[in-house]
């Protein structure tokens, strides 16, 4: 297969066609911030953190859903991108009620890491303080909407990896929420297999096992991709 030549941050790379900008960047250790991307499931371009600048295009495009083309000139670290990364991060925090001090994922949270990474010292936007539900009806797991950033990683893992499709998204705009079945309690779900993959996929502390307390959450989101690789071997 003919490789394509692309330029990322003034360096030349050879990459196979059909790959996304994000895939190529990850291969060459070029850092791109992501939240909704999870290796092993399809990309949806929901979080807007992986935006990159492409020469000849006025709009910023998401690296995860944009495929490379020949002689593409990509910039990942411009001031413009840094500005938007900061805005996006602040909006994540302003949208729901994120309280790290009492969160199970404190220390292992991807949102928390992101805040440190973009150097967020304050938030310029008014907090929405939405009233969010905490679903504790499942015998083992808890879903806390307060900590959800609507990356839909749980939805995709449940659908694409487990095949159960217990999770989906209801409403639109700022009223979106993750739902189980007909917006019924998780514990009454007829589709959930209690496999716990959504807990591994969740970047924050929105999904967690009941047996743990503050800061004890252990996560292994890489397990999703490993599962998919093993499945290919079986087939």
């Amino acid at each position: 297969m003919n490789k394509l030549t692309i330029y990322i941050d003034d360096k030349q790379f050879q990459a196979e066609p059909g790959k996304s900008i994000l895939e190529v960047c990850r291969e060459h250790d070029i850092e791109i911030l992501t939240m909704c991307h999870l290796k092993g499931v399809n990309d949806v371009g929901a979080c807007r953190l992986c935006l990159v600048e492409i020469e000849g295009m006025s709009k910023l495009l998401s690296a995860c859903t944009t495929k490379i083309t020949a002689n593409m000139v990509i910039h990942t670290k411009t001031e413009r991108i840094k500005k938007y990364q900061r805005i996006t991060t602040e909006l994540f925090f302003a949208e729901r009620n994120h309280v790290c001090a009492v969160c199970v994922a404190n220390g292992t949270c991807e949102l928390q890491d992101l805040g440190y990474k973009v150097g967020m010292d304050h938030i310029r936007y008014p907090f929405l303080f939405p009233k969010c539900e905490v679903d504790t009806s499942h015998p083992w797991y808890v879903m806390d909407q307060n900590r959800c950033i609507m990356c839909t990683r749980c939805v995709r893992v449940c659908n694409e990896v487990e095949g159960a499709h217990n999770w989906d998204v209801k409403n639109r705009g700022y009223q979106v929420r993750i739902i189980s079945d007909f917006d019924t309690p998780w514990g009454e779900s007829i589709t959930c297999t209690s496999c716990g993959k959504c807990l591994q996929a969740c970047p924050t502390g929105a999904l967690w096992p009941k047996a743990i307390v503050q800061g004890q959450m252990k996560k292994n989101p890489e397990i999703i991709d490993e599962l998919m690789e093993r499945r290919k071997m079986i087939l």
């Binding site: 159960a164 217990n166 989906d168 209801k170 589709t191």
Partner: peptide, 8 residues
């Protein structure tokens, strides 16, 4: 179709 898909 999964119930959550219809509801969504």
């Amino acid at each position: 179709l999964p119930p959550s898909r219809v509801y969504s």
